[in-house]
Design a protein around this nucleic acid. Structure first.
Lengths: 153, 153
DNA sequence: TTTATTTATATCGTTCACGATGCAAATATA
DNA sequence: TATATTTGCATCGTGAACGATATAAATAAA
């Protein structure tokens, strides 16, 4: 017999990892028609909320590093969904701006949230219980995303 | 103003995706000393529970495809953590068996579950509330992992 | 103002995920 | 028993994640 805490069925992380993967998979058929991946869809959500943001702001909003989203943004630029231009005030920044095509995708994808929503709704997860689930996930995220203090020298 | 359902803060999937990534990251410092990744750790959890399983059983237990874990198992074999041998009854199967080293890792990693556990514990997520969170995640997983019916012909 | 440090982004290498495809062994059907 | 289908696994290509490193611009310190 192995210790309780090593059992897969007692692992929070495995559940999060699996639920996350399966839910991303549920987005796939809804996004791939427009040549989008789920992480690219997340970038669109960020830019629909506020256009013309530097790479760093998008990365921070998604809790990702710039080395993850830079290639992703480059692919989206190649698809004509957005533009990447050098910042005028700060020449180090790359400002990401939606193209007409990128903005129009919002209308084309109008059904996505609803469709995915009904795909996950079940006994224990529904409009009534969602706030509680959201709160727990937000707390986990907050707990784990605390900025690491810089090395002491 | 964009529609409510497009706001990042209303997305379940984004929360799952972020929480999953951050929690996997929390495992990294605990596993990398032994040359392990988080998905490899999951394979170990499966094999510690029951050794000598075919690739397909491991994949199913983790809700993954064999094309994902085959290379992963090959890397773990190269590290001497497990062996891959052809099945005797069914020659198509590859049976995965832990080596001494793979079995011993359980003792070396004894602190891992506890350490990660205390890293996520917070107001809303604790031993008392965990069962509720587990139930919701399990329901989502069950809802999304229903076998897709084969094409009608 | 030189020089040092920090910041914003990009590049690189490795490891997943995962759809698509290939292949051989096992099973079902004719 | 010959043929067709299914099953188990592997290979391939693409797109993330992410640690490590590089580079240029901005800022701070000397």
């Amino acid at each position: 017999m192995i210790p309780e805490e090593f059992k897969l069925d007692n692992q929070l992380c495995f559940r999060l990892y699996t639920a996350s993967r399966l839910l991303s998979q549920a987005y796939h058929p809804l996004l791939c028609g427009d040549g989008l991946t789920y992480p690219q869809y997340l970038v669109l959500l960020v830019l629909w909320e506020k256009d013309a943001q530097p790479v760093n702001d998008i990365a921070k909003r998604l809790f990702l590093e710039t080395n993850t989203i830079t290639p992703l943004l480059q692919r989206m630029e190649k698809e004509g969904i957005l533009k990447r231009t050098k910042g005028k005030e700060d020449a180090r920044q790359t400002i990401v701006t939606l193209t007409r095509k990128g903005k129009n995708l919002q209308k084309k994808l109008a059904e996505v949230p609803q469709t995915v929503g009904s795909a996950v709704t079940c006994d224990s997860v529904n409009p009534e219980t969602a706030p509680e689930l959201f709160r727990m996930l937000d707390d986990i995220i907050a707990r784990l995303s605390l900025p690491k203090e810089p090395e002491v020298r």
